[in-house]
Write a protein that binds this DNA or RNA. Sequence first.
DNA 1: AAGTGGTCTAGACCACGTC
DNA 2: ACGTGGTCTAGACCACTTT
Lengths: 242, 242
Amino acid sequence: MAHESPTFSPLYRQIKSLIVQALEGGDWRPGQAIPSEQDLAMRFGVSQGTVRKAVDELAAENLLVRRQGKGTFVASHDDPRAGVRFLRMTALDGSAAQPQSIPLECWRAKAGQEASRNLAVEPGSPISIVRRLLKLQNKPAVVDEIYLPGEFFGALTLEMLQGWQGSLYSLFETRFGVRMIRAKEKIRAVAADRNSAELLSIAEHTPLLSVERVTYTYGDRPVEWRRGLYSTAEHYYQNELN
Amino acid sequence: MAHESPTFSPLYRQIKSLIVQALEGGDWRPGQAIPSEQDLAMRFGVSQGTVRKAVDELAAENLLVRRQGKGTFVASHDDPRAGVRFLRMTALDGSAAQPQSIPLECWRAKAGQEASRNLAVEPGSPISIVRRLLKLQNKPAVVDEIYLPGEFFGALTLEMLQGWQGSLYSLFETRFGVRMIRAKEKIRAVAADRNSAELLSIAEHTPLLSVERVTYTYGDRPVEWRRGLYSTAEHYYQNELN
DNA sequence: AAGTGGTCTAGACCACGTC
DNA sequence: ACGTGGTCTAGACCACTTT
């Protein structure tokens, strides 16, 4: 039999898509186990090996987490095993970050040109904005301004942020059902303005990292845009190149 | 039969080690094809599937490159397909980097404390140092100071650097047989000193990225330490978080 | 036509965690 | 003892490249 499909996609990728759809649709909740490979293989009418390959890729993309003997689980920002996955700051002595988030403000606005482009929403559509200070090792290290589409985060309030123990992404996942999957960052060097300098307890004009991040959920859909000013007095941004 | 090995390692990982040893020993040269999976399976006395899993991991780590229908090849910094793998700078408008390396100086010295720690060599042992300017889109963007262990790079000269077309890592691989596999970077924000400012055609005290990189070859052995000052006037450092 | 990697299957057994 | 993911095998067939 000749092969004729121009949009050929191997079986395991189709299975992968089905699993992602189930995740997206909320069939399986973050932190919980998905059905066993045998179970999935029967459901989809393929061999266990094909399911395995699909799950392998999803585990490599951090959408799923395998645990031998126990099962395969939906990745969660709530899981302490995950830690603060997207924060790349390390103390100069190499010790752990120990982040503490201090929400400063939270208000609603209409999307300007930049927010609209980065969040892929119409200009003028409702968004929520958060300003917060991040302390690392009990020292002010990052000032963030975070832009969120109102479609998902319209109900976000300062009180909610202040009352939450844990990471922002954990809150977004638990309270708003939005799961942050991957992100892109653009890093530049800038001089501290007066306001940021005060918050970070440094001198005005001190060089800072400007880190612009767009965060995506399933289907490469952008659901967060943030700009952070990182003080590198006590910490550095660590990156691995492969 | 009970399992009793405390240092249990699955077969495919042992195969993987054997392949890495062969790469390290120079049995197969960068850019060239390694034996077919069938061939390797017979040599090692395992099934093709086991070799496949080993090669899969090595391909994921960018040590090997698979090409359907042709074979599996040793990754090479010389290969235009690879590009400049470790340079994360992108133009503000998003276009490609088009790097041009301009070697400024090259001399030999004895390893100081910092170089000795980062290169894992004895303090006082011979090292080579390179200073160079990197232009992106024909604009000065990065000033690098590069520290290399004399053990491998004792013969490096400015003339060699100036005469080379292509990336530094391509030169290191081709002329010195040292293959850069992965790297770690530590990024901070600093103010431009006078000398760097001149080279980068910017004002003194302009904020710059300070990018410190340690680069490793096989077996996690560090073989390069460099510090770069990156101008983010026309470019930004791009990073992907997963 | 021949050789390579890529996919898919089916079955056996191992390692890990829980009951 | 049982169920889970992890490893290993053997064989079939597909897709891509070269001869």
